[in-house]
């Protein structure tokens, strides 16, 4: 029995030690999430308590309701939804043909182009944020959704091109070539044959662009200052005052924001790792 479920030759002691070690790491990794869960369930009178219980005494959902009543959480949710959807849409539309070109065609500067795309991933956020910010002010695009989307897609496009190129590489060329023999031109074969086959990769890069924009704070804080245009991250972080923070409501709102993204992320994580390492090993 044991030899099938565990490695051969492991003693019971070794197995127990492995479980204890993993248990400690799991506790450290999960505790902060449990911590906000616990605070979000506390009644307002005991938000500041020194108890370490996960489910507090007199647990209530008041904070979740108050997050919508006392703050503009629904407005922030809507704004974030619009901005993230736009970033995902443009981030993919603008990179899909380039990903195809990098995968299928030979042209001058292909290698340089690909490594330039990697170099853009090395820029610190401030590198393009500062000039873009000044440019946006010039064109009166600060405090607009369009301005924020522009900054977001400037980082997602290079990343998406890499991911999509990697996926196009795995689609056999023979399908397109037989279409050419049948008289299709390159545009038709791309739209009718390759693009539908690449649907999973396209969905994946759209989702990652969406989640990136959904969770972005550092850029949004600079571009958006008008109170009716705040996105979730700015709204949430504004709750964090310098001296006092409404921790109960903040925690509830943070969980409302984070849990959907976390679930999607955990389901998709294995694709992301595969794509990243595959891409960089090949490059």
């Amino acid at each position: 029995m044991r030899s099938e479920r565990f490695e051969k030759g492991d003693s019971v002691l070794k197995i127990i030690l492995i479980y204890i070690t993993l248990g400690i790491f799991c506790a450290i990794s999960v505790y902060p999430v449990l911590n906000i869960l616990s605070i979000s369930l506390r009644p307002a009178s005991t938000v500041f308590s020194t108890s370490l219980k996960i489910i507090p005494d007199n647990a209530t959902f008041d904070n979740y309701i108050n997050a919508f009543l006392k703050y503009d959480l629904s407005k922030w949710l809507l704004n974030s939804l619009i901005i993230s959807s736009l970033s995902a849409f443009f981030g993919v539309i603008l990179s899909v043909t380039a990903g195809y070109a990098f995968s299928r065609f030979e042209f001058l500067g292909k290698k340089v182009g690909l490594s330039m795309l990697l170099v853009t991933q090395m820029f610190p956020a401030t590198m393009t944020l500062l000039p873009l910010y000044i440019m946006l002010i010039h064109y009166r695009l600060s405090n607009s959704f369009l301005g924020l989307v522009i900054v977001y897609i400037s980082t997602t496009i290079p990343f998406n091109i890499w991911i999509l190129k990697g996926y196009f590489d795995t689609i056999p060329k023979s399908l397109e070539e037989s279409a050419y023999v049948d008289g299709a031109n390159i545009t038709i074969s791309f739209y009718k044959i390759t693009l539908p086959l690449a649907a999973p990769a396209i969905a994946l890069s759209a989702l990652f662009s969406f989640m990136g924009a959904w969770s972005e704070y550092i850029v949004a804080r600079v571009i958006i200052t008008a109170s009716d245009k705040l996105t979730l991250p700015i709204g949430l972080t504004n709750m964090m005052g310098q001296f006092t923070t409404d921790w109960g409501i903040y925690s509830a709102a943070a969980l409302i924001t984070a849990v959907p993204v976390m679930i999607i992320f955990i389901c998709l994580s294995k694709y992301l790792v595969g794509g990243l390492t595959l891409g960089s090993v090949k490059g």
Partner: peptide, 26 residues
């Protein structure tokens, strides 16, 4: 899945949560 949680949580929420956990009194 449990070990991957810190990557899945939006970074700023993770950071603010730790900030709360580093509070001197509570």
């Amino acid at each position: 899945v449990l070990l991957i949680l810190p990557w899945a949580i939006p970074q700023y929420i993770g950071a603010i949560t730790w900030r709360g956990m580093f509070n001197i009194e509570y």
